[in-house]
């Protein structure tokens, strides 16, 4: 009986610790996703500034770049090529955000900002478009510096909280 109890306690603690690790990993992935998004936006910026490349082609270029967001932008490019009469950029962007991993790594606040950016993309003149992209890049940079500053503590905290929660639940159950 005692062995089973001990085995159960160990399982609870290990599971809780694993959940803590998952949260820690998610924090790291959020940073990776934002850095990758920032690089993709730089491609947008340079393609629009120097080549006036349409969105569909920019997305196709990012698709082959091997970035974390490649699949998402591949989807956007494909949907824009199909020219579905019922879908605008906003709808395509939002649908894509629900289909692929990279957008899921973003926090709710960042995700909302990302969707807002996509909804307005391609509707303005060149200067406005570049202004919006640069502003969004700056926003991401600020978010990244904030996240990177706290990432070690956040990871440690997630792991520690996982183990602590496991121990706490075990004590409660015993």
């Amino acid at each position: 009986m005692t062995e089973i109890k001990l085995f159960g306690m160990a399982l609870i603690i290990i599971s809780a610790a694993a959940i803590g690790c998952i949260f820690a990993d998610r924090a790291k992935r959020e940073i990776k996703a934002l850095s990758s998004l920032s690089r993709c936006l730089m491609v947008f910026e340079s393609e629009i500034r120097y080549c006036n490349t349409p969105l569909r082609e920019i997305c196709a270029r990012i698709y082959v770049s091997g970035e974390l967001w490649s699949d998402f932008f591949g989807y956007v490019s494909e949907m824009l090529s199909e020219n579905d009469p019922d879908a605008g950029t906003g709808i395509i962007w939002e649908t894509g955000a629900g289909l692929f991993d990279a957008p899921r790594f973003l926090s709710a606040e960042d995700r909302e900002e990302f969707l807002r950016f996509g909804n307005e993309l391609g509707k303005n003149d060149r200067e406005s478009e570049l202004g919006r992209i640069n502003m969004y890049i700056d926003h991401i940079k600020n978010r990244l510096s904030l996240l990177e500053k706290n990432i070690n503590e956040r990871v440690r905290l997630c792991r520690l909280l996982g183990v602590t929660a496991g121990v706490f639940i075990t004590i409660l159950m015993v």
Binding site: I48, T53, L55, R56, N83, G88, T89, K123, D125
Partner: peptide, 15 residues
């Protein structure tokens, strides 16, 4: 919407 589709959702590219 027709104009947006016409520009391939990239108004800036057709200035």
């Amino acid at each position: 919407n027709t104009f947006l589709a016409l520009s391939g959702f990239s108004t800036y590219a057709f200035e």
